[in-house]
Nucleic acid binder design. Structure first.
Length: 287
DNA sequence: ATTGAGACCTGTCGGC
DNA sequence: TGCCGACAGGTCTCAA
């Protein structure tokens, strides 16, 4: 489920339930997700207050009153649910679903449940020092919707990289938050082939070519549109949204064999595999 | 240093 | 109906 727009929607869901609220009780229903929980995870959280609910790339980052920071990643299948405690307490509490792994009971009266069938998600609790030394977080590229992410920045990051352009877009050090769907969508919108070398959007000296400008604009457009669409719906899954509203479906993702949606293009969407991931593209209008 | 392949998990779907 | 393989929105590690 989760690329940047889905994580941002999750952040917006969690904020009213968690910001300014204290952890009254933390339940771990198993010992690990992708990795083991940090030592004394529940005890270190209990009694602390959430100062803010922020997002960096696909990570949810919650600074706490204790000085530590709760860092969470949804992996492939992670999701949060929020319930009011009154409802949770009324009648028989609903039995935990098979993959409800973590429950936060907040002083706001909200019960926040983390579900993750594939357990690729991560929860970590970092001291200030650990946070600033966290190689993955520190090494993340620019936020794609920030002003720092422009054609010059993207060209610099792609220069001299020989990997396919789409593979480069999935590298979180190049730009932070794109995933398979939105990388595919942005490349189609920009009219760029996923398989061209990443370095072709930059000059030999690393300056942006016009293709870099088109790609940056397309990335921002695709993400902005996805965020706006999800803010308008109660249910936050892009996939559920897609099936619920046919016209809002992706332009090319999972549309193998369909006509290319580009106006005037007679192409057909083809599926290929790059870096072990499905790519969808039109060979006529994406060069 | 960069790159590709495989690993980590469970669920679902299509084909036989 | 049931079994089996392919595939799924993401990292991470290891070897070349």
């Amino acid at each position: 489920m989760p690329e940047l727009p889905e994580v941002e929607a999750t952040r917006q869901l969690l904020e009213p339930a968690m910001r300014g609220a204290r952890f009254d009780r933390v339940l771990l229903r198993r010992a690990d997700l992708r990795r083991a929980f940090p030592p004394d995870f529940a005890a270190r959280l209990t009694g602390t207050t959430v100062d803010a609910v922020t997002r960096r790339a696909k990570y949810l980052v919650l600074p706490l009153s204790s000085g530590e920071t709760l860092v969470m990643h949804l992996g492939m299948s992670g999701d949060f649910g929020v319930q009011s405690r009154e409802r949770a307490a009324s009648a028989a509490p609903p039995p935990p679903r098979a993959h409800d792994h973590v429950v936060f009971e907040m002083s706001s009266g909200c019960v926040v449940t983390f579900t993750d069938p594939r357990r690729f998600g991560v929860m970590d609790l970092l001291t200030r020092e650990a946070l600033s030394a966290h190689e993955t977080l520190v090494g993340l590229g620019p936020e794609p919707l920030s002003p720092e992410f422009d054609a010059a920045a993207l060209a610099r990051a792609c220069a001299r990289r020989r990997v396919p352009l789409k593979v480069a877009l999935l590298d979180q050090r190049v730009v932070a938050g794109l995933g398979n769907i939105y990388a595919v969508e942005a490349l189609h919108l920009a009219g760029l082939s996923p398989s061209r070398r990443a370095s072709t959007i930059a000059t030999p000296t690393g300056k942006p070519r016009p293709t870099a400008m088109r790609l940056v604009a397309a990335i921002k457009k695709v993400l902005t549109t996805a965020i706006a669409r999800q803010s308008n719906t109660t249910y936050r899954s892009a996939f559920a949204e897609a099936t619920a509203d046919e016209s809002a479906r992706f332009r090319v993702y999972d549309r193998e064999g369909e006509a290319c949606p580009t106006r005037g293009c007679a192409g057909v969407i083809r599926r290929s595999v790059q870096g072990g991931r499905s790519t969808f593209a039109c060979r006529i209008c994406q060069r």
